[in-house]
Design a protein around this nucleic acid. Sequence first.
DNA 1: AACTTGACGAGGG
DNA 2: CCCCTCGCCAAGT
Length: 122
Amino acid sequence: MNPANDKHYRERVYEIVRQIPRGRVMTYGQIAAILGEGYTPRTVGYVMHGADSEGLPWQRVINSQGKCSTGKMTIPVNLQQSMLEQEGVKFAKDKCDLKEVGWSPDGFEPEEPEQISLFSEN
DNA sequence: AACTTGACGAGGG
DNA sequence: CCCCTCGCCAAGT
């Protein structure tokens, strides 16, 4: 489903965010990948503007580098980080280890990129 | 309808 | 590790 035809794509993002367990995080890109083609990390980031007023654990969504990126004047990144630290997420400086605290919904497996061979494989 | 702005991400220098 | 570029796409002017 493409965002343009999906008037409820925001709800789909919210639904995923709601599932993130305490002390774990997901990235914008991960969520976009789950939503499918037509969705991009940017779109997810845009949708997250309204997340706090939806009563969601918005702090559990961070960028692919393991850092909080709440942008400029919306929500201070230090607030997001301290909220996460409060629920057990450890940060080295301003970055956490996604290998450790990263999370994916049950049943979701990322697709393998297709192999492109430069030479004919026989 | 054109142009700009992001709570993004991958890749290159 | 930091900085820049580019691709991405919804919204607001």
